[in-house]
Amino acid sequence: MMTNDMAVADAGQQATGRRIGGVILDLQKISLSFGGVKALTDISFDVREHEIRAIIGPNGAGKSSMLNVINGVYHPQQGDIVFHGETRHEMDPHKAAKQGIARTFQNIALFKGMSVLDNIMTGRNLKMKTNLLQHALFWGAAQREEIEHRKKVEEVIDFLEIQSIRKTPVGRLPYGLQKRVELGRALAAEPSMLLLDEPMAGMNVEEKQDMSRFILDVNDQFGTTIVLIEHDMGVVMDISDRVVVLDYGKKIGDGTPEEVMANPDVIAAYLGTSH
């Protein structure tokens, strides 16, 4: 317990001294279209190490498409993505996961038939090295590996305070907890960058506060860079370092929460303008 407390205290110190590093993800003039529909047009922005970067915008603005581009689900027709100083070509989700990008989904995408523990364990699949035959025997290396990863997963479970439900099938959990488990699955992969697609959608105030706290803690304790999409302006303004605003697939604002709030284009997109 002693070491644990020290770890927390340590993290607290880091938190006060949390320094936002250099640019680790640079999106340059990204354009994405599906047939004739232009989802994203000429969007450029960057993400710095250890920061919390929010993407906001009205429905259909292209926010989720943006995340899908970052983790390789969609392939933009134009534009370059520079991640850790390297221009990415031929991206797919598997490669993105290997490079340390994890994400959650707008509509919960948990594995319904599996327990909380198993769901979070899948987050560590990439790090598991034993093969099928070893699994069939479940002896020696396979068992040791399973135990070693179980320890990591238990850390995540402790962190998210979901110890009591670890053996419950996720289908039986309430919505707010499912969202938390999904965050846990992403965290289990020990990502350097975490993409959160509306982590607080459909939550009540307490659940939102809990989730905000977890997001801030992840950022503080593990130094994870976070890119999140969120509709709740209060939350966005409170927790994010910088905000990018999209509307109809175009970027209309970028900067600190205060700058963005004062941007007339953003106000127009959200409230409408008088013509």
Binding site: H94, A102, F105, A109, F111, T122, G123, N125
Partner: peptide, 12 residues
């Protein structure tokens, strides 16, 4: 089986 897109994103 349960959610192939999510599985892929995790690295499966």
């Amino acid at each position: 089986r349960d959610m192939d897109v999510a599985a892929e994103v995790i690295g499966i």
